[in-house]
């Protein structure tokens, strides 16, 4: 396993997440897609840290632990937003929610 393999997997994960976020109409599924992209980034951190000059420093791991912690909070906020949107519009289909339009 070389660094490229990790990067390839992470790129694939990112693409899957992006495709989900872009093409899904359900806000929950879009949120899941975003989480996948986030985890792809995390994987990159770990991989780069692992193959860096000083892997014992655990910099990547610590960064990722922070990132996971913040992602948990973000997921909570995201779900709360989705619930609030649902209460307001009675739907979470993103193509119906377009009050941001100019």
């Amino acid at each position: 396993m070389s660094l490229q393999h990790y990067l390839l997997i992470s790129a694939m994960l990112f693409s899957i997440g992006f495709a989900g976020a872009v093409s899904r109409r359900n806000a929950v599924l879009v949120l899941i897609g975003v989480e996948l992209m986030l985890n792809a980034a995390n994987l990159n951190f770990i991989a780069f840290a692992r193959y860096a000059r000083n892997p014992e420093a655990l910099t990547g791991v610590i960064f990722v632990i922070f990132s996971i912690g913040i992602a948990a909070a973000e997921a909570a906020v995201g779900l709360a937003l989705i619930i609030a949107v649902y209460r307001h519009y009675q739907t979470i289909r993103l193509d119906r929610i377009d009050s941001l339009k100019g």
């Binding site: 976020a21 872009v22 093409s23 879009v30 993103l94 193509d95 929610i97 377009d98 009050s99 941001l100 339009k101 100019g102």
Partner: peptide, 12 residues
């Protein structure tokens, strides 16, 4: 306005 039609996913 075509570019900004409120569809979040189009922005994305």
């Amino acid at each position: 306005a075509f570019w900004q039609n409120g569809q979040v996913q189009r922005y994305l």
